[in-house]
Design a protein around this nucleic acid. Structure first.
Lengths: 339, 339
DNA sequence: TTGTACGCGTTATCAT
DNA sequence: ATGATAACGCGTACAA
């Protein structure tokens, strides 16, 4: 279906003026007679004329579309996307979102698809599976802006908006130490994940600074899901010296540990304190509420969009930028031993 | 930045053939000499030629872009969008997402923005504030496909993908009755909201069928947020005959009630049972876990995209379609009084 | 099988 | 102040 829409040609014909006059009038160029401009504007509104952005894009060589590729739409990414959207909108850009579902294959496919969908460049957060970033080379060869956020990878080239994960972890663990915890365990992700490693580093740093021993049996590399953390927590509870605090690299994992601890009849935070990472809404909804390291997701998204547009408007020889954000610890019941 | 990209013209010049030959070869048209096609394909790959979709869109008069407008990115919509994306991708379409943040003003603005961004039509879920749907008339005048999902409004014209909310509510309340509950309260939204009313209707239906009295003090019209439900629940507990079960029109509200009940030292489900609506992940994560009515979000999204594409490919005189989905009750600890 | 020429809707350049 | 015309990159009748 879809019938033919009116174009500036139709307007020109109807009003006996040239297309250029119509074009100029509609775009409010100065050199137009006020009379004719009014006639043109009036008639355009009558027939509900809408400019065809595709044609404009072709001439101007831009689509004003930004491709966004995220692993999923959990709270963090949904919020970040809102930030991207807001900044993009302000600058007159529209966002095309695509989810990789944490799958490398889909990430590659979606990268292609987005680039073929007229987007002017990409804002990307890598999938958890991604261990190869060749598919982005194409984007760069095209000289298109490429901004990564939240997730990094060795050898990745492009502007980046990252969180100081190490600092976040260190802050969280130091807080647990301040609360009197001495046997703090780390529930982390697979050993090759950049984010997990940064947070682990922050964890060990905090322990070192406090002069506490780093015990390998307190450092767990598991899956991201709740179930995995639940099982790992049960194992931790079997230790001769079970931990008196848990720092989890993600809220899902924190919730798994939380469940295991509760089921064993132990008290939170009295017996075992917990701090998670991401500050998902659920953390404040459960009882006792759970402390968590919050990321400025919205701000990070905004910044990503800003870097994108900056690069778009830049001249030859743009240098990739790196913006690092500082996380903020949300202290809740699960880690408040000292009232 | 952004340098000039190679076009079929460049390829034609380099290979001493005409642009039409290149165009045909690249799109695998049959009437091309196998020799020349190989030369062309080979060279195109060498210089990493990427077709300019903007130009193609202009000629073909389609952008293969679907505009999606959702109120937010909570679990339901995130999942629905995944469904839309999947079906769209299969059909060669790309999705442009925009969030209204439950604001009428943003909905209107985003509708305009999307339509100006070359999308071929819209898949929309209304914002909670929306009480006027004039802004969609424009889309329809353009003969563009318009599909609404999840949220309806009187007088709204377009294809629709809805949930049988009444049935969902009735199922939930009947289940509570089966579990022995007799004083069931309904935590609903503002009185002018279609979804809230449908669910309220299901609630009263179930009571009627069981021959139970419908008490107005058990029917609450509040806000969607947890806090509002929390306060309303506290009020309910003050009644001479407090309810022995809560059916909430949304999970957030269920969580608010949940919190109030727990704080008052009452047991769930023994003293008061709870059923929510939406089946957000959190419902299975808390303890006791909370029953909830699940919507087939992914399938609903897929269907919306299918209707969209169907309409796009249809001839003159397409009739709007209505697809209704059946919800499914997830029974969990919060409503299992009979083991 | 291949080439020529025009059109898609708009903007930009150069005249008038 | 306005008009004619050539782009933008690609697809496609029509010709050859």
């Amino acid at each position: 279906m879809r019938s033919k829409l009116p174009t500036i040609k139709d307007i020109a014909k109807e009003l006996n003026v040239s297309v250029s006059t119509v074009s100029r009038a509609l775009r409010g160029m100065p050199e137009i007679n006020e009379e004719t401009r009014k006639r043109i504007v009036k008639y355009s509104e009558e027939i509900d004329y809408q400019p065809n952005m595709v044609a404009t894009s072709l001439v101007k060589r831009n689509s004003h579309l930004i491709g966004v590729l995220v692993p999923n739409m959990d709270y963090f990414f949904a919020t970040a996307v809102k930030g991207i959207d807001e900044a993009a909108m302000e600058a007159g850009y529209t966002v095309v979102i695509s989810q990789s579902n944490e799958s490398y294959g889909r990430e590659v496919a979606n990268t292609q698809r987005l680039m073929n969908s007229q987007v002017e460049g990409l804002i990307v957060s890598l999938s958890r599976e991604t261990q190869n970033v060749e598919h982005f080379k194409r984007v760069q060869r095209k000289q298109s802006p490429l901004v990564f956020f939240d997730r990094d990878f060795p050898g990745l080239e492009g502007s980046k908006v990252l969180l100081n994960n190490e600092l976040g972890a260190e802050t969280a663990v130091s807080h647990l130490i301040d609360q009197g915890c001495r046997r703090i365990a780390y529930l982390g992700g697979q050993a090759n994940l950049a984010i997990s490693n940064s947070r682990e580093k922050g964890y060990t740093e905090a322990l070192k600074k406090a002069g506490l021993e780093i015990k390998s049996e307190y450092i767990i590399h598991g899956e991201f899901e709740k179930e995995s953390a639940y099982n790992n927590m049960l194992d931790l509870l079997q230790l001769a010296e079970p931990p008196d605090a848990i720092f989890a690299m993600g809220d899902r994992m924190a919730l798994g540990a939380y469940k295991a601890i509760k089921e064993k009849g132990l008290r939170i935070p009295e017996d075992i304190a917990i701090v998670g990472f991401n500050d998902e809404p659920i953390m404040s909804m459960v009882s006792p509420s759970i402390s968590s390291v919050a990321q400025p997701a919205f701000e990070m998204g905004k910044m990503a969009a800003r870097l994108f547009i900056e690069q778009l408007n830049s001249q030859e020889g743009y240098k990739n930028r790196l913006e690092t954000f500082v996380p903020h610890l949300m202290i809740r019941e699960s880690s408040m031993k000292i009232k």
